[in-house]
Computed example of a mutant assay.
Amino acid sequence: MKKIFFGTVLLTAVIYQPVFAQCNFSFNATQAQIQQSHSSSSSTVLKFPSINGMKVSYTVAANPDMGTKINYYAMNGDEYKFALPQTGIIAYEYQFKVPTSVISGEGNIVFLPTIGRGIGQDQIPFSVMIVYANNFDPTQNQNNISVAVYNYNNGSGGTTGQSFNVSTTPSGYQRLGIYINQDTKQVGAIFNGVNVGYIGTASTKPMNYFFEMNLGQYAIPAGNAVIGQEISQELILDKSQLQFKYPVGTKDICGAVL
């Protein structure tokens, strides 16, 4: 594991507060809504081909043109957010199915990023970003998942966080827990059951939340071993489905005590 630092990312959103019988989030944006949201992208912008509840996935296919990047997105078409508990610790998790070895050749697959975001106190944006990188830099033998807290300051900012090497697990998935201490504004992480503690402190306390998933694929040539593999991301919000051990009194992000 190693410390990581991310560059500037500008994020905007609109506040809504729906009521859920169970803590969940709808990735219901259409292809047209996704293209409109990312109209400035120079890449091929597509909706994930498979969206099942809070799980999104696609099957790797050959894409030999190094000049073309495919971006898959999942988001909520209504752009809503829901209010977060304002005291104590709140938690949510992700489950990822990704290759457990580095992609050979020049191609790569990345999450760019998968994100939880919202508006904090004094209308300051708040973001927790998840970045997966497999062979993004061919000189690094890189296959890891990173989590970072983005701090905004007058329209710009920076991130601090931590990265984790992907490993073979009994379930075949990589699982990441995020917990936010609303009293101290610290963000912690648990990766595959190992709690690494707080990995960053936000400049603002989040008041609400919104999720977006993203995946990018560059140039996977025909015959590559990764072709045919399923890549998936799943968001887990409800207390009944959270697997990791959190401090006593921790709530899911809808306010139910674990």
Rank of each mutant, 00 (worst) to 15 (best):
E230A: 07
R175W: 01
G120P: 00
A222P: 04
C23P: 11
Y246D: 12
Q174C: 10
M129A: 14
P113C: 14
A225G: 13
T204A: 13
G116H: 00
V149T: 06
G120N: 06
Q17A: 14
D252M: 01
G77Q: 01
S41D: 15
K55V: 07
Q243D: 05
N154G: 15
K3C: 10
G197M: 04
V110E: 15
N134W: 04
I89N: 05
N192W: 02
A256T: 13
I119H: 03
G157Q: 00
P221E: 09
G118W: 00
K239A: 15
T201Y: 01
G107S: 09
Q241G: 11
D137G: 06
L10H: 06
T204C: 10
G249H: 10
P113A: 15
Q123I: 03
F20G: 10
G193L: 01
S41K: 05
R117S: 12
Q33P: 07
P206T: 09
Q95G: 09
I70E: 10
G53L: 10
V196R: 01
E212V: 08
G197L: 06
G7D: 08
G223N: 11
Q31R: 04
V128A: 15
I190H: 08
A29K: 00
F164D: 10
V98P: 01
E230Q: 10
Y209I: 15
V9T: 13
Q95E: 14
G200F: 05
V14Y: 07
I130S: 05
E79L: 02
T114R: 01
Q33R: 02
I199W: 09
A32L: 10
N192M: 00
G155Q: 10
N28Q: 07
G7N: 03
V257W: 01
N181M: 06
G105Y: 05
G197S: 03
I178G: 11
G88E: 12
I51L: 02
A256R: 04
A61I: 02
V9Y: 14
D252I: 06
